[in-house]
Write a protein that binds this DNA or RNA. Sequence first.
DNA 1: CGCCGTTTTGACTCGGTTCAATGCACGTGG
DNA 2: CCACGTGCATTGAACCGAGTCAAAACGGCG
Lengths: 248, 248
Amino acid sequence: MPGMATQTPLAAVEPLKVACASCNLRELCLPVGLNAGELDQLDGLVGKRRPVPRGEHLFRNGERFEALYAVRTGFFKTCVGSEDGRDQVTGFQMAGELLGLDGISSDHHHCDAIALEDSSVCVIPYAQLEELSRDFTVLQHQFHKIMSREIVRDHGVMLLLGNMRADERLAAFLLNLTQRLQARGFSPSSLVLRMTREEIGSYLGLKLETVSRTFSKFQDDGLMEVKQRQLRILDQAGLQAIVNNSRC
Amino acid sequence: MPGMATQTPLAAVEPLKVACASCNLRELCLPVGLNAGELDQLDGLVGKRRPVPRGEHLFRNGERFEALYAVRTGFFKTCVGSEDGRDQVTGFQMAGELLGLDGISSDHHHCDAIALEDSSVCVIPYAQLEELSRDFTVLQHQFHKIMSREIVRDHGVMLLLGNMRADERLAAFLLNLTQRLQARGFSPSSLVLRMTREEIGSYLGLKLETVSRTFSKFQDDGLMEVKQRQLRILDQAGLQAIVNNSRC
DNA sequence: CGCCGTTTTGACTCGGTTCAATGCACGTGG
DNA sequence: CCACGTGCATTGAACCGAGTCAAAACGGCG
């Protein structure tokens, strides 16, 4: 599988049990700012890891909410659906990001979380997290920050969906994706998409054909190379310019 | 001011100091589930009320985050803006709803909050709220629920912006608005809008002309009466049907 | 009264959807 | 090993919903 090489520089097959203290996602995940003793306690709480094969649900809309999940390896999407068949991808989650925050509101999940490749998550029982965060103010604050960050992210997506044209949306999406990959030690210019054109389209409020056409246009304009899901960003500044300028 | 009558059945000019325990928004706001002693403590925390005249900012994007605000009376909008001039209304807040949650993520506000009519808010210093919620698990849980509910709401808006047509968006907006007004003891069928067509359009990802036209269409179809900002819902089920059916 | 912000309405344009055909990569079984 | 099937991606052509531009009407207020 040479195509995946650019996105798997870190441990290939890691042991099932990795303490938060020695987890390479420590600085992106819930434990930010915790000292050694606190990390130990958090470890006691995060008892289980859970593998989620590609295409499988981590949880479904309507299921009872009991735990949050931290992505350890792999890649997920979350989607909400309405009574009539429509559904909307609300986000893509990669290593270190938290899934399930929507479930707190009513003790039931409000979206589906689906693995886009073979993945694994750390299970964080929510009742215990609340308990522990009463003792560790740093953990409490970090948790609140993560929830707040999700709200800020959502507002950014609203801006994108409400105001931007197709090319602006896709450019913003690509920049966001590469930035997050870069924060995890991957190349900011070369990446392999884990999702289909249709899933990108659903997230961006576009049809898959529009996504495809816009990729082609970016390629024609020399901004990037597109070979199916294998992408190479050639002109990051050019993409940024598309996002910034409403008219040009 | 006869036009406002339908939306001011409760206390006209209330005293500046109202304890959470005797606040009529108790069941919609942060204090849900707290006992008498806990309410007292929360009251100690929520020291100040702050009036916000129509058109004024409660807070601005970039300002230091120090407190959350509970709407006591009046009506607000929140909006985010991008570098280039675009901006997007991310929500409308009425009595009992919390403002400022986005600020937790980085100690700075990420949006503007603006009063759409003369309003007042309860100031909830955030550091003290974190502290108090370490002692009162009910308060802690209620606060988490409120944040989570905002995330769920945002995902609903994404679905709306990503998948729905103009008439579906406006119908969904009207139903949401009347439902929230009803929860506060107002008529579910008669209401006065506090925002302009442009603000509605910004929230729904539409231009003001489209909002206006769609109102006119709903009126022609006998679903509602529209006299400028004075609305009367004649066929709630009809609006619901528009939201549910993607094609009809 | 006359101004001004807001709303309504009309005519035209255009970006993105829809429908449809073709191409590409990959796995599976003959 | 190649033929075939399947899912995903690309591309084209026609169409349509919402945007744009412009003008007129409404309502509130100095």
